[in-house]
Write a protein that binds this DNA or RNA. Structure first.
Lengths: 199, 199
DNA sequence: CATGCGTCGTTAACATCGTTAACAGGACGG
DNA sequence: CCGTCCTGTTAACGATGTTAACGACGCATG
């Protein structure tokens, strides 16, 4: 049924994942598919809607990557491994990461809006891992959402800076990877309950 | 001498600080100044070089904002207040913050490159604050640069997410501000030396 | 069978963008 | 006075996203 539509989506995904959003022009995309540029508008409202749909896959991948967290045995291990999944996704799909979480700004408001919605179940997953740790008394605080937000900000900062080349000493992915893992782990440890009220 | 050149720069700075980079088109800019679009090229090589020059001011402001850190009495206070200065800058000059640290990507490689250079003395300032704290034994580790990088990633993450509207519960600047201050402070505390070797 | 309609493609065209080329005036030094 | 630099102009190119107008095909209904 939607044969060319699928072709467009795949070509878009490829162009996009390899070159980035900036390289995704309607005309180039059309050339690659073998149709005229305006034909794309028979299948998608906008460039934005097209990207939106491509990003749907990105969010699926992202959610799946975070599910790595479920392989941990203790609550803390699961939280830590969720962070590792986050890193995996960022390293394997940097282009997706960019548009999903480093979107230029009020261009693509729709994308931005849907990014939040699409992200919300995944963020809920993080909240669950946090409250699980809180129940196990390995993480303090009583507001899992706020803690989750701070964890996200923490990991996002490192990834975003690195992807933009703002961390010169950590050039190759391996160097950054080992930095990140420690950076993540030690932050989670720092969130341990402060009061020694267990006596 | 360079009268119109200054006018262009000021108009660019205004357009830019209010609307963002995306709103800064050569033609709009020229209209605002009252000259033709191509006249700009008599004064600037490129759009990139123009933005570059505008950003110079951004980096000056940024450096100045971080100097707030010097008002602290203890080493730790100075480090904390450096973070507050960082927040101040991000809240007062979000557009500058965007191009300086959230630049889309390999468009504007020059800008990106100079961003790193322009940032390096400021980053050095952060390193100094960290090693100061390490000498005072309020922060652990022996590599101030790595610690500084992690602190930067930490604060940048929160700012970047908030500026992109990815922190829905923290809408107004005040809410984010109070979140950030605590977020910053508690992270710095978590960097305290781990060994309780003080007796 | 024919009529009509919705789907999918086409080409032309428009507005906007950054940028270059070719040209014009005015200041200024020889 | 002449040439040269500086600063501005208009025309134009190529690329962008997008719309309008048109044509072919399939397919159901009269």
């Amino acid at each position: 049924m939607h044969d060319t539509r699928q072709a467009i989506l795949e070509a878009a995904r490829d162009l996009y994942a390899t070159e980035g959003v900036h390289a995704l022009s309607m005309r180039k995309l059309a050339d690659q598919v073998g149709i005229s540029a305006t034909a794309i508008y028979r299948h998608f409202n906008d460039k934005e809607h097209l990207i939106l749909e491509v990003c749907g896959e990105g969010f699926t991948l992202f959610g799946a990557a975070l599910m790595k967290g479920l392989r941990g045995k203790t609550a803390m291990e699961r939280l830590e491994m969720t962070g590792e999944g986050y890193l995996d996704f960022a390293l394997e799909h940097p282009q997706y990461y960019r548009v999903m979480f480093m979107s230029p700004h009020p261009d693509f408001t729709l994308l931005h809006q849907q990014a939040q919605e699409a992200f919300s179940p995944t963020f809920q997953f993080l909240i669950d891992r946090v409250s699980e740790c809180q129940r196990a008394r390995v993480i303090g605080g009583d507001n899992p959402e706020a803690v989750a937000a701070s964890i996200w900000a923490h990991v996002h900062g490192a990834v975003a800076l690195w992807l933009d080349g703002h961390m010169p000493p950590l050039q190759d992915p391996e160097a950054f990877s080992s930095f990140f893992l420690d950076y993540n782990k030690s932050y989670l440890r720092s969130l341990a309950p402060s009061d020694a009220s267990e006596g």
